[in-house]
Protein backbone atom coordinates (compact mmCIF):
# COMPACT_ATOMS: atom_id res chain seq x y z
CA UNK A 1 0.00 0.00 0.00
CA UNK A 2 1.11 3.54 -0.63
CA UNK A 3 2.85 4.95 2.46
CA UNK A 4 1.34 8.39 2.07
CA UNK A 5 -2.22 7.07 2.04
CA UNK A 6 -1.39 4.81 4.99
CA UNK A 7 -0.08 7.76 6.97
CA UNK A 8 -3.34 9.64 6.40
CA UNK A 9 -5.61 6.66 7.10
CA UNK A 10 -3.81 5.69 10.32
CA UNK A 11 -5.07 8.69 12.38
CA UNK A 12 -8.64 7.91 11.25
CA UNK A 13 -8.20 4.43 12.73
CA UNK A 14 -6.84 5.97 15.90
CA UNK A 15 -9.87 8.27 16.21
CA UNK A 16 -12.10 5.23 15.57
CA UNK A 17 -10.50 3.34 18.45
CA UNK A 18 -10.36 6.48 20.59
CA UNK A 19 -14.09 7.01 20.18
CA UNK A 20 -14.68 3.38 21.20
CA UNK A 21 -12.23 2.89 24.04
CA UNK A 22 -10.96 6.27 25.24
CA UNK A 23 -11.46 6.93 28.93
CA UNK A 24 -14.17 9.47 29.74
CA UNK A 25 -12.58 10.41 33.04
CA UNK A 26 -11.51 14.05 33.48
CA UNK A 27 -7.85 14.77 32.70
CA UNK A 28 -5.27 15.80 35.28
CA UNK A 29 -5.99 19.52 35.28
CA UNK A 30 -9.76 18.93 35.51
CA UNK A 31 -9.26 16.49 38.38
CA UNK A 32 -7.16 19.08 40.15
CA UNK A 33 -9.86 21.70 39.53
CA UNK A 34 -12.51 19.41 41.00
CA UNK A 35 -10.36 18.47 44.01
CA UNK A 36 -9.40 22.05 44.81
CA UNK A 37 -12.81 23.47 43.98
CA UNK A 38 -12.06 25.87 41.16
CA UNK A 39 -13.77 23.92 38.36
CA UNK A 40 -16.76 26.30 38.47
CA UNK A 41 -14.54 29.16 37.29
CA UNK A 42 -14.18 27.63 33.83
CA UNK A 43 -16.22 29.48 31.26
CA UNK A 44 -17.91 27.39 28.61
CA UNK A 45 -17.13 28.77 25.19
CA UNK A 46 -19.61 28.15 22.40
CA UNK A 47 -18.04 25.86 19.85
CA UNK A 48 -19.53 23.69 17.14
CA UNK A 49 -18.05 20.42 18.36
CA UNK A 50 -17.72 21.23 22.07
CA UNK A 51 -16.26 18.32 23.99
CA UNK A 52 -15.52 16.28 20.85
CA UNK A 53 -19.13 15.54 19.99
CA UNK A 54 -21.06 16.09 16.81
CA UNK A 55 -24.17 18.17 17.52
CA UNK A 56 -26.88 16.16 15.71
CA UNK A 57 -25.87 12.60 16.57
CA UNK A 58 -27.01 11.12 19.85
CA UNK A 59 -24.84 8.00 19.85
CA UNK A 60 -21.65 8.71 21.79
CA UNK A 61 -19.40 6.57 19.61
CA UNK A 62 -20.64 7.97 16.29
CA UNK A 63 -20.65 11.60 17.41
CA UNK A 64 -17.09 11.37 18.79
CA UNK A 65 -15.87 9.63 15.68
CA UNK A 66 -17.50 12.18 13.37
CA UNK A 67 -16.07 15.08 15.42
CA UNK A 68 -12.58 13.55 15.34
CA UNK A 69 -12.73 12.94 11.61
CA UNK A 70 -13.91 16.52 11.07
CA UNK A 71 -10.99 17.74 13.15
CA UNK A 72 -8.57 15.76 11.00
CA UNK A 73 -10.09 17.23 7.83
CA UNK A 74 -9.84 20.76 9.30
CA UNK A 75 -6.16 20.28 10.16
CA UNK A 76 -5.46 18.90 6.70
CA UNK A 77 -7.16 21.92 5.11
CA UNK A 78 -5.14 24.22 7.38
CA UNK A 79 -1.85 22.70 6.20
CA UNK A 80 -2.95 22.78 2.56
CA UNK A 81 -3.70 26.45 3.15
CA UNK A 82 -0.28 27.18 4.67
CA UNK A 83 1.44 25.36 1.82
CA UNK A 84 -0.57 27.24 -0.79
CA UNK A 85 -0.10 30.59 0.95
CA UNK A 86 3.65 30.21 1.05
CA UNK A 87 3.64 29.22 -2.62
CA UNK A 88 1.64 32.35 -3.47
CA UNK A 89 3.88 34.50 -1.27
CA UNK A 90 6.97 33.33 -3.10
CA UNK A 91 5.35 33.92 -6.51
CA UNK A 92 4.32 37.43 -5.42
CA UNK A 93 7.90 38.22 -4.45
CA UNK A 94 9.19 36.84 -7.72
CA UNK A 95 6.82 39.17 -9.59
CA UNK A 96 7.94 42.14 -7.46
CA UNK A 97 11.59 41.40 -8.05
CA UNK A 98 11.15 41.09 -11.81
CA UNK A 99 9.08 44.29 -11.94
CA UNK A 100 11.92 46.28 -10.42
CA UNK A 101 14.08 45.85 -13.48
Amino acid sequence: MNKKIGAVIFPIFVTFFASLFASKNPDVLETLAINYGFDKQAKEIASIFAGYSFPFISSHFLSTFCAGATGLVLLYILYKGINGAIGRFIKYFLVLETDKK
Binding site: A7, V8, F10, P11, I12, V14, T15, F17, A18, S19, F21, A22, S23, K24, N25, D27, Y52, T64, G68, G71, L72, L75, Y76, L78, Y79
Partner: peptide, 13 residues
Protein backbone atom coordinates in the same frame (compact mmCIF):
# COMPACT_ATOMS: atom_id res chain seq x y z
CA UNK B 1 -0.27 17.16 13.09
CA UNK B 2 -2.92 14.62 12.07
CA UNK B 3 -1.30 11.86 14.14
CA UNK B 4 -0.94 14.08 17.20
CA UNK B 5 -4.53 15.28 16.95
CA UNK B 6 -5.76 11.70 16.74
CA UNK B 7 -3.63 10.56 19.68
CA UNK B 8 -4.69 13.52 21.83
CA UNK B 9 -8.26 12.17 21.64
CA UNK B 10 -7.10 8.85 23.11
CA UNK B 11 -7.41 9.34 26.86
CA UNK B 12 -5.87 6.57 28.91
CA UNK B 13 -6.99 6.09 32.53
Amino acid sequence: ALWIFAFQMFNVP
